[in-house]
Nucleic acid binder design. Structure first.
Lengths: 362, 362
DNA sequence: CGTTCTACGTATATCGTTCTACACAATCTA
DNA sequence: TAGATTGTGTAGAACGATATACGTAGAACG
């Protein structure tokens, strides 16, 4: 009937012709917009199925939404992030939105480039996981697109939402557990501050950890918090320095699991037994914690729930909410072997490497 | 001068007016297209900087390229994939292209949905890592967009490229190493076949492993290849069945590292020592292999190089190559503690749990 | 000096949607 | 019964780039 049939791509026009209605009508059906009768909706849907029509997202982006949400992951090696992503999938299930991911490499300039690229590609909203940008940067981005941040506390921020666990409390939980287990000289190893704005959750955990020790009567110089970049070599060097110092710690808190697993490796490589000589605790309760060879005590921050909430917040923002909302969940300690010293800590002897490094695991 | 200045968004038109040239000229500069003088290029570039202009990707996508390449990752928990991604970043550095990632969840229908979504968003090309679709599906996709697959062998495919290591050879390397270390009853645990088309690299590794054992004189019923879905529970159940069978293996090859680490956990949880009672070998040489607590012998397949090559192939395809190209690299064994039994395997006694499960790691 | 290149620019149709404005009929209200 | 309202549908202008087709000036050539 219609004279034109040069192109082979199925467009909204093809559907309209097939269904015998206008292009605008099809568009309305597509968007579940107001002003279509049930009869028309049905007719159009059938044509779309018959032609297996898929709307062209780039074209939609020119005027309206793309139904794409961007997710910026600060890095890809963190075994905790998959939990969050499961939560995001939960939150997106049943909606038209699809997540596309950008992967930062620990540098805020790379992150910025990715965010720009996503904005240029007309994403409808953005979830940022563990990003390293300052709140001011986030405000700027929020003026272009709705965002929700995970792993960055900004309770006063109005232009964007956030979803987090209570990291200060989490840090405190760790200190309390160490003392309850009989460890006497707890220490923490945390991320170095090379990038101007490093992950601020680590700082929150440090504060909680330190405050709890203070509360238990520790003097300022007995609160030891060392730092190292992630990566086995840096961590090992710092662990070595710590354990060879005059009053070495008998328990170490690694600021996050992926990092604590490197601490675990370093401690054992130096010939110490875990948890007998040194207790080790991580943060996130990521999947590898449960492996027998790690058996790592950790703080569960309910990543999946955080991901779900973040997604809910984002969709609300996209739909028009302008009031900020900041979700916070209370973390919980999951005790495993790495912090369960069997001994009664009577003689307060300094730990030293137990004979040989454990050959079975060498 | 120009009457219109209603909108605030900086478009190609804004730049053109500022630079005093036509819109078409600016577009040419943007695309490094033919027919612009150095003087004009400079002038336009300056205006773009001054206005901090960023081209609108959706609009570009309507007629030309989006300068976005999609990367489909079969899952996000595999610690090997980051290596590949590093390679992709290498390959993309210095180009205008930016990668956006889709994350499958082990199901080919989810993967298909992601691929469609990416195509609808006008990506210029697609790299698929460890995807589970059949070659026929890939042909269909390849007719819409250039693709390169990683972790799927299709040497005869003409419509798309691939980048892989030689998985058959890799499987053989493992068997040879086990025998050289004195292990006498090697076994392999590999992925279950629940999804119709599961990762075909695992099958290649199985073949290499089995062929090598045959070559060493093993009888067919002594070549044991068990299967389990990934996930600690399934793997543990299968490992238990294997180790409690009449002639239990004394060495186990896990088809990939993320999987072998679960095997390691299961074996130790059952009270066996590694490598004394049971040797364990993985595949990929992912970062966690080097941790002291894992100390996992593995096969290095040079993921970063694979990622680099895949990217090169993709860009060539985007630029117009139609002849298929299939890159294959030869893998290499990296021996670590998990496969280094110290004993001389003289008395061929069956392994049994050494006394108690190692309390220190429980 | 006319013709033919070559290099550089411009004008404008086009991509596939969404959105605004409006037409029309049926129903409600005063 | 006139006027307002509601429900349903259409036409056509955007959106911001790219690609095509073409114009112009200067150089090269015979």
């Amino acid at each position: 009937m219609a004279p034109r049939q040069k192109s082979e791509r199925v467009t909204i026009r093809t559907v309209a012709e097939d269904a015998g209605v206008s292009v605008a009508a099809v568009s309305k059906v597509l968007r579940d917009a107001y002003g279509v009768s049930d009869a028309m909706r049905l007719k159009v849907r059938q044509s779309m199925d018959k032609l297996s029509y898929r709307p062209h997202s780039a074209a939609r982006g020119m005027r309206g939404q793309t139904y794409t949400v961007g997710v910026l992951m600060a890095d890809i090696k963190n075994p905790f992030f998959p939990d969050i992503i499961d939560g995001i999938d939960d939150g997106l299930a049943g909606t038209q939105y699809l997540p596309l991911f950008g992967i930062g490499r620990g540098s805020s300039s790379v992150e910025r480039a990715i965010v720009h690229a996503m904005v240029d590609r007309q994403i409808d909203g953005l979830i940022m996981i563990g990003q390293r940008m300052a709140t001011a940067d986030l405000d700027a981005i929020a003026s272009e697109v709705p965002i929700v941040v995970i792993g960055h506390h900004a309770p006063e921020a109005q232009s964007f939402d956030s979803a987090n666990n209570d990291d200060v409390r989490g840090g405190a939980i760790v200190a309390e557990h160490m003392l309850a287990q009989g460890y006497r000289r707890p220490a923490m190893i945390t991320l170095g501050r090379n990038d101007l704005m490093s992950a601020d959750v680590s700082q929150k955990r440090e504060r909680g950890f330190a405050d709890a020790l203070r509360g238990a009567g520790f003097a300022e110089h007995d609160i030891r918090i060392a730092s190292a970049d992630d990566g086995l070599d840096d961590v090992t060097a710092t662990v070595r320095a710590l354990l060879e110092s005059p009053e070495p710690p008998d328990a170490i808190f690694g600021w996050a699991d992926y990092y604590a697993l490197e601490v675990l490796s370093a401690v054992r490589a130096l010939g110490f037994r875990v948890p007998d000589d040194i207790g080790i605790i991580g943060y996130d309760n990521a999947a590898p914690c449960a492996f027998t060879q790690n058996n790592l005590t950790s703080v569960d921050q309910f990543g999946r729930e955080i991901g779900r909430q973040a997604t809910r917040l984002l969709i609300e923002r996209i739909k028009g909410r302008t009031q900020a909302e900041h979700f916070v969940v209370t973390p919980r300690l999951v005790a495993r072997g790495s912090s369960m010293a069997p001994r009664v800590k009577a003689g307060d002897t300094l730990p030293s490497p137990s004979a040989q490094p454990d050959v079975a695991h060498k």
